[in-house]
Amino acid sequence: MAERLTLARQIEEDTAKRRLQRLGAAACEPAWVSLWAAALGLPNGTPGAWLLCTKEMRRALLLVGTELPTQVEEPSSALNIDNGLPPTPEALNRLWLWERIGTPRHWRIQVLDSTPTPIWLPCWLGYARGRQHRLLVISGLSGEPMPMLKPIVLKGLQQAYRNGPESETKSSGASERREKAV
C-alpha cells in the first residue's frame, strides 16, 4: 500500500475560529480524517482535481488542484480519524461517472489512476452549545463547512472517547457519507 500523504492545513487557527464562530460554535479543535484520493484529468494528461472518498462513500469530495497540497510532517497531537479500506477501482469510476452525468461539462475528465492514494485531510471541529451539543466540521483546506463528514467524525469521536485519550491518534470509524468539495 502506498504511504499515506498528509495534506497541509491551509486554514490557520484564527481563521478557523472566526469561521466556526459565524456558524455558532463556542469551542474548536483541529482534527485529521483519513480518506483516499484519486487523480482526475483529461486522458493522458496531468491531474486537475482529486476525488476524495472511502470504500463505502456514495458521493466523493472534490479537491481542485494539479497536485495534492501535501506536507512532510505527519499529523500529530490532534485527533486522527481513520476510515479503513480504500474504494475499489470500479467504485471510483462509478462515483465519477455520476458526477459527469450530472455535469456534462466534466464529461471529458476521467479518473487517471484507479489506485487511490491514502491521505490525511485536515479539518477543524467546532462545538456549539444550545439545548443540545452540536458538532460542526469545516475543511482545513478551504474553511468550508462539510456536514457530510459529520457521521465519520462522530464515529471517530465516539471511538476516541471509549478508548481514552491515548487512542486519539488512531481512532477508527466507518465512512457512510460523502462531500462535494473540500
Binding site: 464562530q21 455558532g24 463556542a26 474548536c28 462545538y127 462522530l154 472517547y161
Partner: peptide, 20 residues
C-alpha cells in the same frame, strides 16, 4: 453522543459565541 461532545467541547479551545 451528547456526552462525547460535551467532553470534547470542555477540552477544546473556547472561541466565544457569535450570532449564527
Amino acid at each position: 453522543m451528547q456526552a462525547v461532545l460535551a467532553a470534547r467541547a470542555d477540552n477544546a479551545q473556547v472561541i466565544g459565541q457569535e450570532a449564527r
